[in-house]
Design a protein around this nucleic acid. Sequence first.
DNA 1: TAGTGGTCTAGACCACCTC
DNA 2: AGGTGGTCTAGACCACTAG
Lengths: 234, 234
Amino acid sequence: MNKYEEISKVIADEIDRNLFAEGDKLPTEKTLAARFQVSRETIRKALKNLIELGKIYNIQGSGYYLRRNGLHMASTLNKFSSITELIQNANLTEGDIEVQIFKRKPNDEEIGMLNINKQDSMFILERIRTANGESIVYSRNILPQSIVGQDFAEYYEPGSLSKYLELKYGIYIVESLMEIQAVREEDVLPYRLKLSDPPLLKFIQVHYDDKANPIYISYDYMRNDLIRFYVRRT
Amino acid sequence: MNKYEEISKVIADEIDRNLFAEGDKLPTEKTLAARFQVSRETIRKALKNLIELGKIYNIQGSGYYLRRNGLHMASTLNKFSSITELIQNANLTEGDIEVQIFKRKPNDEEIGMLNINKQDSMFILERIRTANGESIVYSRNILPQSIVGQDFAEYYEPGSLSKYLELKYGIYIVESLMEIQAVREEDVLPYRLKLSDPPLLKFIQVHYDDKANPIYISYDYMRNDLIRFYVRRT
DNA sequence: TAGTGGTCTAGACCACCTC
DNA sequence: AGGTGGTCTAGACCACTAG
């Protein structure tokens, strides 16, 4: 663990333990540097971390201050997470039903987004994902055979696709570009999800690995009555 | 202008002028430091900037590489912008119609979100905002009288509210926390926006100034057939 | 093993806030 | 004017990648 990460955690912890009141001033960089026996730059890195987390803010020439109003920061869309993690964060248990896998040729949009060639085949993984038994999202993942190999359908396991890619292929999804859409008339949804006519949001994502390669596309029709979605804009 | 900002711009410019091919390796930090006659840390700050913009990525021990796939980066929701800017970014001309301003007492939710007290009054600014004459968003802004003063209704001008707060009160909105919702049955919308039954998204935002004070709340029902919304998740 | 980025330091000077 | 954060430096050592 790096020094600045350690220090960041210690201070975050002290904030969570209410050692400061909202709007309180934190010690100066110099003071903190002395306390932790590190250079000022290291302290600055640690504090920058906390600013990005929305825990503190600062004003040049004045100091660092506590911020308690950044309520729902933990579950913002800014941070990449799988649906599995999203559901687990909401303290629910995840499951998969109505799983379907099939194969077809890519369309032009997919060729463009995933940077593949026409000859490649695409696996389509469709499923309804549940939280505590309730259908919560209808999701469709589209990934090229050139990445997962011919026998993907046989070896696939329920749960997080990104976690599966990590374990089986050493592919680490670290980032995605997501489009958020209102659901339209023409969107075809499984009967099970239309049952109670819940409010739905449509997420379209391209997922990238740690080398900025586009790996797969996902379409997620998420129930918005059970999960809420936040974006921090800075 | 700081050195690292200058350097960041120069390199961004060279990228935009296609001096590198996609996936190309950029010069090493050391090389760049020599070229710009600055220290390595300064180069690192400049490069970090470009990583955040999605223009490059890097791999420890290997180097910095160009990334061209980050398509819609310019218009992501990650970056705070007013609706006026949103519309102008789409190369459209903004206008306001059906403007209504009234005053009422705050409800509990508003008291909590804006950190005000019960006695304060709230101004409600409702309007339909247009792009090239087309209704594009129904928006409702809620801001306390304690910030804008009693005579807000008289002095209000069409256009960006955040820009108005800047000019008239020196309040700089630099950040917001936004919730994205699917539009529900019970949402009341003006007839003009329901006309063609367009797909709509509902944005609920708390806007913060540069000292992390919550300033106002906005509800925006945005047409999703004319504007698209992206979030970068990292 | 050589080269690259990641962390860390100690000190300097500047820009801004506060009194 | 004194204190605080913002930028910048030159150099050190470490962690990782690649041939």
